[in-house]
Design a protein around this nucleic acid. Structure first.
Length: 592
DNA sequence: GTTCACACTC
């Protein structure tokens, strides 16, 4: 042993930080007892804190609780704060944090401080339900105001902004944020992250530009949230800008930042660039690999997705559940059924990972898309737990693709047993009836929906033009350039007709309100967005659209024609994958 | 001490 190592070893607490087995911890604990160091409350607190926050072994946290419970001297706020922090970070039971909080409140000699509240708020935001988290956050806020903490510091307030956002109370978070007198960069980051997190991406980007106008410094965390927002919106221009910002300001390409970049490029349809980032990253973790795989899968590069996974195995990196969701989706979207089954079986046998309902859903989807409906049904019937709505949903979607009414009706009724208000299930079933031109059945489904108060989620498409995001809804007339857009849709329809395109109206009859039925085909939101793109984007610039729902057959056909007739590349990201349209063809090969 | 990354039948 070298001299420097020996001197480190002399400090038991330093040694404790790297201990990964309970045996080592026992030895250090004994040593401290023998040397009488634990009689000193600050020393004891430090011991408890290091142990509680150690990520080396899941048994360290319970052990730290025992140490504190059996100590002769009363706990300090520091020790209890550390336990609250430990339970707010990693514990699967954040409610435990409140147990230690009560201990502070009940002790006559202790009172909570700003640290206590910061960690408690963090614990609140990790509670399982949004309602619980919201009420806990409110509680913490009330306590903070009622307490001698008349003026909670900016750290506590920032944590509260994050807690409200995590609870889905984003407007309450914004109110808190606006009330912080001297907002620092971290407070701005928390608010931007909050918007990104709940999917209010446009507001995230708007707040980011205000942040720059005010002149607050931009950090890695800011850019990560901005990239997340760009990914959700499919805002490639702004995402590229953020990437350039990273390079110009010489930010280190950390694992988090690189992963966010991969995700952004993938979700903006530029998977080639995503893979360049992936290859250039000096350090990667399971998030990085999973993101790359998911990006390849959603862009239809199933083979490469599998290659990445094989490479990961070769490097003996441990995949997690999400890696397998990405992998199985890759297999599913490219029709690699047998390979998919092999991977699915290897989850348990080779990697010791118990499949989630989502993995079963992917398998059902995989068999179903391939037209192997009986096997898909078998897979559902042999699930080790009660099939969730998603498994039946995958089957129902397969029944739509492969036109199977009987099985479709079964799947739909199973979904109704689980989720009465599942609008997607009604729409899929009615689309199956429509394929068979059974309008009576279509209108029955419609009546049932009406009777139960189920509404179809409205279609919405967004397009980014020179860094600005434009949103279109079905039949939306609110855009300032609506007149020109309307004229362009007319031109599109005219030129498509000449080119031999015929509208398929089967599916759309159900999609919109009765009175709009006539024009429905022309007015699906992506058509408005494409028309707008044709008006404002110069020739040769691809039109990129992001849609919240699945593309309907008609729009898919029409977009193929548009790509040929207008000689324009069109990239559409629908609810779960990309369609790259060029010269009258689509990258999905009509398989989605 | 506070802010940041992967998926999900649709």
């Amino acid at each position: 042993m070298t001299a420097s190592l020996r001197s480190t070893a002399c400090n038991p607490l330093t040694l404790l930080e790297s201990s990964s087995t309970l045996r080592e911890v026992h030895q250090i604990h004994c040593q401290l007892l023998v040397r009488g160091l634990l009689g000193d409350p600050p020393y004891l607190s430090k011991f408890v804190a290091i142990l509680a926050l150690s990520q080396n072994n899941p048994h360290h946290l319970p052990y730290s609780r025992l140490v504190l419970a059996h100590s002769p001297s009363p706990p300090t706020v520091f020790a209890l704060n550390s336990l609250i922090r430990a339970h707010s970070n990693t514990s699967s039971d954040p409610l435990q944090a409140f147990h230690f909080y009560r201990q502070i409140l009940h002790s006559p000699s202790l009172s909570p401080d700003n640290y206590t509240f910061t960690f408690l708020i963090r614990a609140s935001s990790n509670l399982p339900t949004a309602a619980a988290a919201a009420s806990a956050a409110t509680h913490a806020a009330a306590l903070t105001r009622g307490h001698e903490l008349q003026d909670p510091d900016i750290v506590t307030k920032t944590a509260m902004v994050g807690a409200y956002a995590a609870a889905g109370e984003i407007d309450a978070a914004r109110k808190l944020f606006d009330d912080i007198p001297h907002r620092d960069d971290i407070a701005w980051n928390a608010m931007i992250a909050g918007y990104s997190h709940v999917g209010r991406s446009k507001e995230a980007l708007e707040l980011f530009s205000s942040m720059q106008i005010v002149g607050v410094s931009v950090s890695e965390a800011t850019i990560v949230s901005v990239l997340t927002a760009c990914a959700q919106l499919g805002a490639l221009d702004q995402g590229r800008w953020a990437h350039a910002y990273i390079q110009k300001n010489k930010f280190q390409l950390s694992v988090t930042l690189g992963t966010a970049l991969i995700d952004m490029y993938s979700k903006c349809g530029n998977v080639g660039r995503a893979m360049e980032v992936f290859r250039s990253m000096p350090e990667k973790n399971v998030y990085t690999w999973s993101s790359a795989m998911s990006g390849l899968a959603m862009n239809g590069a199933g083979k490469q997705c599998l290659e990445i996974f094989d490479l990961m195995e070769k490097k003996e990196l441990k995949p997690n559940e999400i890696t397998f969701v990405s992998l199985l989706r890759g297999c599913s979207l490219t029709g690699l059924v047998d390979k998919g089954l092999e991977y699915f079986d290897s989850m348990k046998s080779k990697h010791g990972i118990e499949p989630w309902p989502e993995h079963y859903g992917c398998m059902v989807d995989m068999y179903g898309r391939a037209g192997r409906l009986e096997e898909a049904l078998n897979f559902i019937n042999n699930m080790p737990f009660k099939p969730h709505a998603g498994a039946w949903g995958a089957l129902l979607n397969a029944c739509r693709i492969h036109r199977n009414i009987e099985l479709g009706e079964l799947a739909q009724s199973k979904i109704m047993d689980i989720e009465v208000m599942n609008d997607g299930a009604y729409v899929l079933l009615s689309n199956i009836y429509a394929e068979f031109r059974n309008w009576k059945a279509v209108s029955t489904v419609r009546e049932v929906m009406k009777g139960k108060g189920v509404r179809k989620e409205p279609g919405c498409s967004v397009i980014e033009v020179s860094g600005e995001v434009h949103e279109f809804l079905v039949g939306d007339k609110s855009h300032p350039m609506y007149c020109k857009i309307e004229a362009m849709v007319g031109e599109i329809n005219g030129r498509l007709k000449v080119a031999g395109y015929e509208a398929r109206t089967n599916e759309v009859f159900f999609d919109i309100e009765e009175e709009e039925k006539e024009n429905a085909v022309s007015w699906h939101s992506e058509k408005l967005a494409i028309a707008y793109g044709l008006i404002v984007l110069n020739e040769g610039i691809p039109i990129r659209i992001v849609k919240n729902l699945r593309v309907c057959w008609d729009c898919h056909d029409a977009t193929k024609f548009i790509s040929k007739v207008f000689d324009r590349e069109i990239v559409v990201r629908d609810r779960n994958r990309f369609h790259h349209f060029k010269d009258g063809l689509c990258s999905c090969k009509d398989y989605w």
